[in-house]
Simulated scan of single mutants.
Amino acid sequence: MSSRVLLARISLFLALVPASANSGQLNLAWDNDLFTGSDRGYTNGVRLSYLTSTAEASDEGSAQLARTAREGLSFLPGIADANNNHAMSVSLRQLMVTPENISSDEPQFNDIPYAGHLSLSSTLWSWNADSITGYGAHIGVVGPESGAEASQKWVHKITGSERPRGWDNQLGTDVVGGLQAAHGRKLMQLGQNGDLEHQLSIVGSTLLSSFRTTAKTGLIWRMGKQLPMNFVPDYAGTSSTIALPGAFSTSRSSWSVFLGIGLEYVAYSYLEDNAGQYRFRENPFLGQVGIGGAWQRDRFQTVFVLRATTGEEDRNKDNFSFGTLSLSWAL
Rank of each mutant, 00 (worst) to 15 (best):
R165L: 08
L190V: 11
S209K: 10
A137E: 02
G160N: 05
A247W: 00
F211N: 10
P144N: 12
H117G: 02
Q180E: 13
D174M: 01
V203P: 00
Q189G: 05
A243P: 05
G143D: 02
S239E: 09
N169Q: 01
R163C: 02
T241R: 03
S146K: 02
Q170E: 08
A115R: 05
V257P: 05
P245Q: 07
P228A: 07
G134L: 06
V203K: 05
L208V: 15
G134I: 02
G140Q: 00
F231M: 04
A129T: 12
V257A: 15
S161C: 00
S122E: 07
Q152L: 04
T238V: 14
S205K: 14
L208F: 15
L196K: 11
T206P: 03
A115V: 12
R165N: 08
S131R: 13
D168K: 00
V155E: 03
E145W: 02
W255V: 07
V203F: 13
T214E: 15
G143S: 09
V232P: 03
G218F: 04
L196S: 13
W221A: 14
H156G: 02
I139G: 13
L219Y: 07
S201H: 09
T159W: 08
V141T: 12
T217M: 15
T214H: 06
S146I: 00
D130F: 05
L171A: 00
A115I: 04
A137V: 14
A236D: 13
G147S: 04
V175G: 05
Y135G: 10
L118P: 01
A215K: 06
D130L: 09
W221V: 12
W154D: 11
L171I: 08
Q152F: 05
G134H: 03
F248V: 00
P144C: 01
W167V: 00
G204Y: 08
V257Q: 11
Y135V: 06
T133M: 10
L124E: 04
G140A: 06
I132F: 04
S131C: 08
L196H: 14
S126P: 07
S256M: 10
L196M: 15
T241S: 15
W221E: 11
H117N: 09
N193A: 15
G160I: 03
R252I: 10
T213M: 02
G172A: 11
T173R: 09
A115G: 00
G178R: 04
R185I: 10
A137H: 01
K186Y: 06
L200N: 07
G246R: 08
K153D: 05
K225F: 08
G143H: 02
E162K: 05
A215V: 14
T173Q: 12
E149L: 00
